[in-house]
């Protein structure tokens, strides 16, 4: 057994593989929303745990990049910690938790609250890239449906939702139409985040490792959530403000405090929350006068 068993190329992937992935990314950018098949590699983390996102990040990251990794909006969830540590180890890049300082943000299930800017790349981890998958299980058929722009079935699903529930009950992985052409799965982000994809200044890349697909939304591209004229798309709203920083109109996590039904709501985006607190914003839970808050 050779002693150099554990030496790997910069950012783990060999340069040939990176080139192959970059070609797929360029094609994806050229055809917004189209799922480009790519020869996904076995990665040293399990399929379904971000191998697609990690391959995309590995293919685009350079020594000068600053990387942020979030999972569920938080920098300190275990899988985010693990992926960040992976890139620190194999690419020795600078990492950050501050959205505004990052050049590449890899994410699972959220888009940061702070508006992304030109030059930033948001890399999504995608479990099932095919928005039509649960309506039509066959890959050969769904590819044809995309090619021929046959998206009636997608609206059948939304119609059924309204017919049975009185409203579109889909809350995450809410399908969008990109640049007026391809219907796309935005990955399992809550639909709350869908509007952030529209006309974003940042480049958005999507990697699905197990399913071997890459797709993209270039900057300043139209991203429209599917709906009906008389049942327009709407995002979740929260009655409460963040208990820690008092933010309103952001996505909140529900935190269970006891077994008596006590709970509080806090920012899902941990960096956003900390930044607000650093700037003196205070929520109900941290208010100095606790009685007043109660």
């Amino acid at each position: 057994m050779s002693a150099d068993l554990a030496t790997y190329n910069f950012a783990y992937l060999d340069e040939q593989t990176k080139r192959m992935i970059r070609r797929a990314i360029l094609k994806a950018i050229a055809i917004p929303g189209y799922q480009v098949p790519f020869a996904s590699r076995e990665m040293p983390m399990p399929y379904g745990w971000g191998t697609g996102g990690v391959q995309v990040t590995a293919a685009i990251i350079g020594p000068d990049d600053v990387l942020k990794v979030i999972d569920q909006g938080a920098d300190d969830t275990t899988n985010a910690v693990s992926i960040r540590a992976f890139f620190q180890k194999v690419a020795s890049v600078a990492v950050t938790t501050h959205t505004k300082d990052a050049t590449i943000i890899q994410t699972r299930h959220r888009i940061p609250e702070q508006k992304l800017t030109e030059g930033q790349v948001l890399v999504y981890q995608v479990p099932i890239p095919e928005p039509l998958r649960f309506l039509e299980p066959r890959e050969t058929e769904t590819r044809k449906m995309h090619a021929l722009e046959e998206y009636g079935l997608m609206h059948v699903k939304l119609y059924e939702d309204i017919a049975h529930n009185g409203r579109i009950s889909k809350t995450y992985a809410y399908p969008v139409k990109v640049d007026g052409r391809y219907v796309m799965d935005p990955s399992p982000t809550p639909k709350f985040d869908n509007p952030k994809m529209h006309m974003s200044d940042a480049l958005q890349l999507f990697g699905a490792g197990r399913e071997k697909r890459i797709y993209a939304v270039p900057p300043h591209t139209e991203v429209v959530s599917l709906d009906f004229e008389d049942h327009p798309f709407e995002i979740q709203t929260f009655e409460q403000d963040c208990a820690l920083c008092g933010a309103h109109g952001v996505y909140l996590d529900e935190v269970v405090l006891d077994d008596q039904g006590g709970r509080m709501f806090v920012c899902s985006d941990t960096d956003h929350c900390e930044d607000r607190r650093d700037h003196g914003h205070v929520g109900e839970m941290l208010a100095p006068n606790k009685e007043a808050a109660e």
């Binding site: 399990p46 745990w49 479990p127 809350t171 992985a173 809550p190």
Partner: peptide
């Protein structure tokens, strides 16, 4: 991967 956190979607 189902054991990874899904609380954002669950919240929704």
């Amino acid at each position: 991967h189902l054991k990874l956190p899904h609380y954002v979607d669950f919240q929704a």
